[in-house]
């Protein structure tokens, strides 16, 4: 049954996720190539000194991309379900509504995880070739909250899209903006290291929120 839901999600979103993955990998590659070019043009010593003296990771070009991909993923997956209340069909499937919607979210999460890992691998390959481990890990650590923001944005957007009551949607949107702001307070490399312990549950805990919207949908709440 879960495979069937994955199949449905694949039909619905394959083009979106293909483009989103290419974008993410493309931008990560660009960031990696950019580091290499800065090193080639200014000298590796200048690049190293830049990292040791400035609070800059030089990869901020990808900062908002995971967030946008997460929001887009949720919209492409769940907006068609809300069109003419198509979600009723999904909730009517004989596997329990938590399981069916959970499988849909698992599909999106899986693709986002895959995209994120590829991005990190691309960045690692480019950076580790020219920079020492201490700087490479600082660069990757800087990108972790941005990718966590992508996951959180994905779940929060589902929460908002599935909610049938507009007044609640407004509240949810405002709250979501502030929650996402928590992931992008600073660009200082490695600044989020002591906060990963609560950022990870904050990001993935947001996956619980669509249950509230689904409950409102099932109870037929409306403005």
């Amino acid at each position: 049954m879960i495979n069937a839901i994955f199949y449905k999600e694949w039909i619905k979103t394959k083009w979106y996720y293909a483009v989103a993955c290419l974008l993410l990998i493309g931008f990560a590659s660009y960031a990696g190539i950019y580091l290499k070019r800065v090193g080639d043009l200014s000298g590796m010593a200048a690049l190293w000194e830049y990292y040791l003296s400035k609070d800059d990771s030089l990869i901020t070009i990808i900062k908002y991309l995971p967030l946008i991909v997460g929001i887009g993923g949720a919209v492409f997956q769940f907006a068609p379900e809300m069109h003419r209340k198509c979600l009723k069909l999904t909730l009517h499937l004989p596997c329990g509504y938590i399981k069916s919607v959970g499988a849909m979210m698992l599909f999106g999460t899986g693709i986002l995880v895959m995209c994120s890992l590829i991005c990190f691998a691309v960045l690692y390959v480019f950076a580790s070739h020219i920079l020492p481990n201490e700087i490479v890990s600082r660069i990757l650590l800087t990108a972790i909250p941005w990718f966590l923001a992508g996951f959180c944005a994905y779940y929060l957007t589902i929460w908002v899209v599935v909610e049938p009551v507009w007044k609640k949607r407004v509240f949810q949107t405002i709250l979501s903006v502030f929650v996402l702001k928590l992931f992008i307070i600073t660009d200082t490399p490695g600044a989020y290291l002591p906060s990963l312990w609560w950022l990870v549950p904050l990001a993935f805990g947001a996956a619980l929120l669509p249950v509230i919207s689904l409950s409102d949908f099932k109870e037929g709440l409306q403005d």
Binding site: A4, Y7, K8
Partner: peptide
């Protein structure tokens, strides 16, 4: 309104539901 998954085609939707 005979709502069904609009993004699927005739054979895909049959394949999808048959699994359930």
């Amino acid at each position: 309104g005979h709502v069904q998954y609009q993004f699927m085609n005739i054979s895909q939707i049959e394949k999808f539901y048959s699994a359930f």
